[in-house]
């Protein structure tokens, strides 16, 4: 433990109320009845996870012989923060007006973006936040951008239809949203779209991005996308990336 307030970046651990105390909170359910035995089981589980001094502060029967635990403990593990590398969308994020100016400067036409929730996903809240006029939380959506023609195809769009629409509209970019990720249904669906685009020989022409609460840039790249956007993404993040990616590819 450090005796001063300098964080040892090579060995960071959670902070409770004193640097280096390693305090963490946990909540989880064990499929056994509430009692001294299950509390001990919960403590042993945390010990196995490298948590010292595990304390059960709350244990509650959930009605079917299962127990909810709230626990605290101290992490024995540390992480070397100086060695962390996270792939990030490597473009400058511009405000809406800056994106519009950038587009005006680099294109003598509107760029075209088609988007939707592909596969079986019926949850449009993400794609709507990015694309619809209104946007989300005070950040206007792509439909409102000068220099962008945005087409939101909505929910449950088959990959084939998404691509057909992109071709028909002469799109520069496809953006898809995947909210339902239970049993990794999104992985197969995301792969299928890329394969389809490749088989049509359009991969170099189109900028393809994915977004959703469980989508990271790293995952999207791995699946062959140009970028992935997680929670906290607004339209300007997506617009900035697409605009710059297109310019990099020499699109005009």
């Amino acid at each position: 433990m450090s005796s001063d307030n300098t964080v040892d970046l090579k060995h960071i651990k959670p902070y409770g109320d004193t640097l280096g105390d390693g305090v963490m909170q946990f909540s989880f359910t064990l499929p056994v009845p509430c009692g001294e035995e299950s509390k001990e089981a919960a403590r042993q589980l945390l010990l196995k996870m490298g948590i010292e001094e595990p304390q059960v502060v709350h244990a509650q029967d959930l009605g079917v012989g299962y127990t909810l635990f709230v626990m605290y403990g101290k992490s024995t593990h540390t992480v070397d923060y100086t060695k962390i590398e996270v792939p990030k969308v490597d473009s400058e994020v511009m405000e809406k007006e800056e994106v519009e100016a950038y587009l005006a400067e680099n294109f003598d036409r509107d760029i075209v973006i088609v988007g939707g929730c592909t596969g079986t996903d019926a949850h449009t809240v993400g794609i709507d936040a990015i694309m619809n006029m209104k946007g989300y939380d005070g950040h206007y959506g792509l439909e409102r951008y000068k220099g962008i023609k945005a087409y939101n195809l909505g929910a449950q769009v088959p990959n084939e239809e998404m691509l057909a629409m992109a071709i028909e509209r002469n799109a520069d970019a496809i953006i898809i949203s995947q909210i339902v990720t239970q049993k990794d249904v999104h992985i197969a669906n995301m792969k299928a779209l890329i394969e389809l685009i490749e088989s049509e020989g359009l991969r170099d022409k189109l900028v393809v991005c994915a977004g959703g609460p469980r989508i990271s840039h790293e995952l999207a790249k791995e699946l062959g996308y140009d970028a992935g956007f997680g929670t906290g993404t607004y339209a300007e993040d997506v617009a900035s990336f697409i605009a710059q990616a297109l310019v990099k590819r020499g699109a005009r």
């Binding site: 959930l62 009605g63 079917v64 449950q156």
Partner: peptide, 17 residues
């Protein structure tokens, strides 16, 4: 479990498609 905890109505969500 939900009924025992106090729920009055249980909705079984349908699969997405």
């Amino acid at each position: 479990a939900a009924a025992k905890q106090g729920a009055d109505i249980i909705a079984v969500i349908r699969t997405t498609a």
